[in-house]
């Protein structure tokens, strides 16, 4: 039987919460690391199902930058990958990494193409919105208005992941 990842994460979490935390290993550092381990496990359980949706949106943001950079071959490869039904998160991440590397190299070497600067800023922020929404429960967003906005982004990601799972 293929292990159920959600089940395995759940039992680790329970073991840490119910047993390891009672072991009295003591000290503030141990308590903090136990707390963060549990919180990290909880986050992983939530984010695992979102991975394909997140990878897709991050690649789309990178492709927008690539269009502004006129990296036509990367754009064609990215569009083809996004159109392929079986494309995995790993494949999308790998393509995105190469694409971002090519854009970064362009920024370093010379005058920027018209529109590239604006595209990098706009679409970097789009990708960062997704990351911030995924990390929202960590509690690092101090602005109440931003927290509310990012909660909406997070809800949309979860809904999209559920739709993709069911179709």
């Amino acid at each position: 039987m293929v292990p159920d990842l959600d089940l395995q994460l759940g039992v680790i979490e329970a073991a840490l919460r119910n047993t390891a935390s009672q072991a009295g290993a003591g000290g503030g550092l141990a308590a903090e690391q136990l707390h963060l381990s549990l919180a990290t496990l909880d986050q992983v359980r939530t984010l695992l199902p979102l991975q394909p949706v997140v990878a897709r949106h991050e690649l789309e943001a990178a492709l927008e930058m690539a269009r502004a950079a006129e990296l036509d071959e990367f754009v064609a490869a990215g569009e083809a990958l996004l159109a392929r039904p079986g494309a995995t998160a790993g494949q999308m991440d790998a393509l995105r990494a190469g694409l971002l590397g090519a854009i970064a190299a362009l920024v370093d070497v010379g005058p920027l193409r018209p529109g590239l600067r604006a595209a990098i800023l706009q679409h970097s922020r789009a990708a960062l919105d997704i990351a911030r929404a995924c990390c929202l429960p960590a509690g690092f967003e101090s602005d109440p208005g931003e927290r509310e906005r990012l909660a909406g982004v997070r809800a949309a990601l979860i809904a999209e992941a559920e739709i993709r799972t069911n179709t």
Partner: peptide, 23 residues
């Protein structure tokens, strides 16, 4: 304390967004 370091790294998303907003 790698778990703490990895946890703190999540602050980076908001900071990078501020960086982009400032630019």
């Amino acid at each position: 304390q790698d778990v703490t370091v990895a946890w703190l790294s999540m602050i980076g998303n908001g900071i990078a967004d501020q960086l982009a907003a400032s630019l």
